[in-house]
Nucleic acid binder design. Structure first.
Lengths: 150, 150
DNA sequence: AAAGTCTTCATACTTTCGGGTGATATTATG
DNA sequence: CATAATATCACCCGAAAGTATGAAGACTTT
């Protein structure tokens, strides 16, 4: 996960660097036109400013969007499993928790997971003790507060 | 709400415009130094590019943050009461819903609102039919999906 | 004044939940 | 191999939740 974040960060940095480099080259060519058509240097400066401001705004928006997506997707994935390990929640218990948070009854969860009603009750009972709650509504709220559930 | 959004939008636009104008003026002064110290025109172009790219990135980040904040705070405040009116949810029923979403039992809700257990059951029963659900967990999920609850 | 809404409460009944205990099979883990 | 962890299922029992129906008082609208 850390490796992935590192590589994507480097990729985006290299991409922006390349884009800036290409823009500089393009500006060098456009400078020739300035001499050919005799436009004033003030217009040239303004064009550079507007162009780079636009590119900067676009880069800022894109970068911010990437950070937002990563903070919404990547970090919960790491803390979610970590928290589940700390609390000792097993994968099957987590499945039951997910179905319960959808509003399903124990009977519906049992049919959905192809197990008996008693099995669902056992999983939920263990889950409640691990979360330190007594009711399913408390379990849902606590799981959301801890970041285990979205 | 629309008036407020319009005015803040104009304010930020004017602010960015003023900032760009001030930067242009600053660049005119810095151009004198270029002539005085004999720096090359390439360095001057690069400085303008980097400067405006930085300003653009900063503007993009700030603008995006503002949009994010507005979308998170402003819109739910209007839709919450509107949705409650459309669904016919009374204020008292909403209070019961809030307490229920905290994970409280019917008995705890009754004691918290100083009413009897049967009254809480009645409110919840009416609430369930208005939300089109059968269980409290479904009600919590639906209320959150609709934006009635945070 | 009549109709409608909101809030409150009650009774009776059925269903669901949750706790407690125990058991068995499988799979890791040491 | 033994022990621990996981997943599965069963039974019992009390508590909680949910449904249906009725009703009474306060308040607003027509």
């Amino acid at each position: 996960m850390a490796n992935n974040g590192f590589s994507t960060w480097w990729l985006s940095l290299a991409f922006y660097g390349l884009s800036l480099g290409l823009l500089m080259v393009a500006l060098q060519f456009s400078r020739l036109r300035v001499f050919l058509f005799g436009a004033s240097e003030n217009w040239y400066t303004g064009a550079i400013a507007i162009l780079f401001a636009g590119v900067g705004i676009w880069a800022g928006l894109t970068w911010n969007k990437r950070v937002r997506l990563e903070s919404k997707v990547a970090s919960p994935l790491t803390s979610r499993s970590t928290l589940m390990q700390q609390l000792g929640i097993t994968p099957r218990e987590f499945e039951v928790l997910e179905h319960m948070a959808k509003g399903l009854s124990n009977q519906e969860i049992a049919q959905s997971l192809f197990v008996s009603l008693n099995t669902v009750k056992t999983h939920l009972s263990n889950l409640f003790s691990k979360l330190g709650v007594q009711r399913r509504t408390q379990a849902i709220k606590k799981a959301k507060d801890l970041g285990i559930l979205p």
